Amino acid sequence: MVSALKDIPWDKFEVAVPAFLTIVTMPLSYSIATGIAVGFIFYPITMVAKGRFKEVNPVMWVLFVIFIVYLGFIH
């Protein structure tokens, strides 16, 4: 599974940060779902930070809200 990490464009901030946080969160939280949720939350945030707001699919914004609610109810 780790061999797929070489295909991530690590030089692109808006892709690398959500990927890194997803990879790190999964083993630290003992939950694949939480890791994926963190990735779905930080992808739109980093895209907005880079000024690429219009490139984010509306489905990603829906998932952003769903996963924020999901993580809110876990704790």
Rank of each mutant, 00 (worst) to 15 (best):
V65P: 01
P9F: 12
S29W: 01
I23C: 09
V24Y: 11
V56T: 02
I36Q: 04
V24T: 05
V48S: 07
F53M: 13
K6Q: 15
V62M: 09
D7F: 12
K50M: 15
Y43E: 13
V56N: 02
F53A: 15
G35F: 00
F13G: 09
P44E: 01
Y30S: 15
G35H: 01
P58F: 00
P18Y: 05
V56D: 00
W61N: 01
L71S: 04
P27Q: 03
G72W: 04
T22D: 06
F73T: 09
G72R: 00
P18L: 02
L63C: 05
F73G: 06
L71V: 05
F40D: 12
V69T: 06
P18A: 04
V69G: 04
T34F: 07
T22L: 12
I8Q: 07
V24R: 14
G39N: 01
T25H: 10
K12T: 14
W61F: 10
T34Q: 15
F42V: 09
T34V: 15
F67G: 05
W10I: 06
A19V: 10
V17M: 07
L71N: 08
E55V: 04
K6I: 14
I23N: 02
N57P: 00
V38I: 12
M47E: 04
A33M: 10
D11I: 15
S31P: 02
M1C: 10
P9M: 05
